[in-house]
Design a protein around this nucleic acid. Sequence first.
DNA 1: GCCGCCATCTTGTCAATGTCAAGATAGGGT
DNA 2: ACCCTATCTTGACATTGACAAGATGGCGGC
Lengths: 200, 200
Amino acid sequence: MRQISQPSYHHGNLRRAIVDAALQAIAESGPAGWSLRELARRAGVSHAAPAHHFGDKQGLLTAVAAEGFAMFADALEAAADDVWEVGVAYIRFGIDHRPYFEVMFRPELYRTDDPSVRTGRERAAGMLVTSTRWLSPGPEHDRMTTMAAWSLVHGFTSLWLSGALPESADGDPEALARSMIRLVLGAMRTGSGGRGLAPG
Amino acid sequence: MRQISQPSYHHGNLRRAIVDAALQAIAESGPAGWSLRELARRAGVSHAAPAHHFGDKQGLLTAVAAEGFAMFADALEAAADDVWEVGVAYIRFGIDHRPYFEVMFRPELYRTDDPSVRTGRERAAGMLVTSTRWLSPGPEHDRMTTMAAWSLVHGFTSLWLSGALPESADGDPEALARSMIRLVLGAMRTGSGGRGLAPG
DNA sequence: GCCGCCATCTTGTCAATGTCAAGATAGGGT
DNA sequence: ACCCTATCTTGACATTGACAAGATGGCGGC
């Protein structure tokens, strides 16, 4: 799902190489534990080369966030036919694409008003709204239901990534996530009379 | 709940002043948007003065996290008699003490094995475990129930702080949080036969 | 009352970083 | 063949985190 850019002049495709180096660096030491010059060294170019493509560090992180939101929306849409699996997809994306996720939900790192960021973010938000409607006890609870389901999966992902969950040592996050979603959202549907169809 | 330290020699209480300056700087521009030298300038001391008290930047953030976890555990314990209010207290702490919260759950920023950090974190985790036991459908679901309730309130807090929730523009977060907790955890208790007593 | 101790804080320094400006390079259109 | 322009390099500067060595001043021992 990464955007294809034409081969560039000297390097081949420096823009992509820098973004990939950034993703790797973020995976190794967090979204702030690296320098633009280090990325340039990894890509084998001069220290100021990245600035040409991204302007500054915030510009690079904006590109990462935009790419991340696009991939994220794709992942959610791919599960759209199964309400529960949208939640699982949310969590799986965060864990499988940790560097993207860690940037996306840290708005002070990048320019949240970037058009391509906005597009992806709104696409993902739309998926959450439509998929959780099936769980809501009634139209007047739609917003609250969306917020609750979103909080649940986002919280699980954040806690897992931060290592706060004791379970993160051993288990398989996806199986765990699926159990949790079944426990909570299942209770919401049966317990409060959600108007959704049984998934699957 | 801030730890009391004896007045120091030249400044009065530089350690506290630096921590307070850090909290303010984090509130303004995130946990990485400032420098030790800036804090020193704010406190009116030389650029290397903070290093004496905290060693390095990570040491300062470790002190912030430790203080935060202690306050956090206190806040949860203060609500311990009411299961639902523990969740509300979790969210309220994150929003009222945003700088602490943003550091606490970002383990790459500080030394998570610091003894005083560990103490506070374990105290808070214990509160979550005991308070959510009332919601669990049965002992074999205790861990899952804790994880679900924790994810819910942590996710809400994270999303609110990141500005991702559309509701964060207008409403009162505490009222919203209370409604969400009632919707979800209430459904869990009634829907799945939780063995807890009705709160209040 | 005085003195030495030592925690506290200052000054000086160094490599590394982000960012800007100016120059070099090379592929593609004409 | 030639120039244009995107791409990348080189050079520079202020700022930063960290370290080392020196200055300051309150407190305990006498």
